[in-house]
Nucleic acid binder design. Sequence first.
DNA 1: ATTGACCTTATAGCGACTATATAGTTTTAA
DNA 2: TTAAAACTATATAGTCGCTATAAGGTCAAT
Lengths: 135, 135
Amino acid sequence: MRIGQLAQSVGVDTQTIRFYERQGLLPPPGRQENGYRVYTEKHVERLAFIRRCRILDLSLAEIHELKRYQDAPHQSCTAVNALLDDHISHVRSQITALQALEKQLVSLRARCNDDREVKACGVLAGISEGSMHQQ
Amino acid sequence: MRIGQLAQSVGVDTQTIRFYERQGLLPPPGRQENGYRVYTEKHVERLAFIRRCRILDLSLAEIHELKRYQDAPHQSCTAVNALLDDHISHVRSQITALQALEKQLVSLRARCNDDREVKACGVLAGISEGSMHQQ
DNA sequence: ATTGACCTTATAGCGACTATATAGTTTTAA
DNA sequence: TTAAAACTATATAGTCGCTATAAGGTCAAT
Ligand SMILES: [Zn+2]
Ligand SMILES: [Zn+2]
Ligand SMILES: [Zn+2]
Ligand SMILES: [Zn+2]
């Protein structure tokens, strides 16, 4: 299986596959005489795993870490679960921050009804005043 | 006022100030004979404005756009308000996406109680299975 | 013989900084 | 007075996870 086929079967760009290889996420495949990469079913699985991790918004570093755990299958999975717990709290704090941001933006927006002159725009005034509780 | 003073009074790194200048966000200041940048109160206000925009997570492009509107103070502010509306919907869709992600992660995490072998870890199994509704 | 689809590497760009290297200037203190 | 510390300058590279471009080699079909 060549790179284009792998790319299509997992739904990834060929560039991305080479990128993962350079990053050490995907093991270097064999090569044909002409230099073309040759992949196996294991590569398909591995790449699909990476993609599913990315859908979960795990960073490449976190995926690396998961890989290291997979390579020691008889150890306790505490670290795996902890990684996920950490990631969940990453996501939660992002949500919290964005919700606070949304509140701020909505109240800023409420300072202007349409059709004023820019000079009198409540939104611009609100930003310029600095009447924002930071963070 | 030199760059360090400006940086301290607004709470920004000097590098960031030079970066904003290169980006055309902050007008190039005057220079002393020795080449040092000299800033005025207007620069302080302008930089503070930029920072408040960044706290609202507006992109540098969006801040540029706001600046253009400020330069035409007698036009209608419809575009300003529209920019903010767009930005609010950016933020809202980010929140929605992250909430869906959180749900997925929490249900994945529920598949494993601690102290299993990695081999039997419900989290890793969950990712590998691909039993994830995508997006 | 040439088109087209595929493959290769190398390099640069995105956004918004941040860090490093190297060098010149000013200020402070021994 | 001189040496160190603190400040300034430019240029360049790194962050993250790709994505795009350039310039070329390979292969099958027309
Ligand atoms: Zn994470
Ligand atoms: Zn307005
Ligand atoms: Zn926006
Ligand atoms: Zn587990």
